[in-house]
Amino acid sequence: MSKTRIEVLDRREFLVASGAAVATLTALTSGALAREMKDANKLLQELTGGAKPTEGKVKLEMPEIAENGATVPVKISVDSPMTDKDYCESVTIIAPKNPTVYVATFKFTPDSGKAWVSTRMRLAQTQEVWALAKMSDGSFRIAKTNVKVTIGGCGG
């Protein structure tokens, strides 16, 4: 709300307006927006058991701009020897701004040969997508990438 606008309001209007503004702000931080973030972080915490995932070794490939959020190609590869002693157990895709932040988990075995998967996912809006890898030694790795989802002018 701009300063000029407030000056032209009388006191009662101002109180109502600012009250509403405060209410909106609270709703945003403790409601929808915050919940979106909290869910993804909570999910991450649940998956890692509180361990902090480190960056690197995970490659998350997605188009910078998705032409339509309904079908967005995604490729994940994890740098791992994939031996019985040392392999990547799984990767989980998380979309923090999707209605359901958990997208999918792919579980590998040493027989997989590579910790690599290519699939297509839905993105409800522009956001940062996460790929969490669980290694056989119990450590976690994470990669993040931003994808812009275009809102078409001629959806048809």
Binding site: E67, N68, A70, T71, T150, I151, G152, G153, G155
Partner: peptide
């Protein structure tokens, strides 16, 4: 040119339909 975020084609759709549209899924 763009219409909002959509890159407008020349409307030469005589060779590709039926088409799989990502939007239609």
């Amino acid at each position: 040119k763009y219409i909002r975020a959509d890159f407008i084609s020349e409307g030469r759709g005589g060779g590709n339909f039926p088409t799989y549209r990502l939007k239609w899924q």
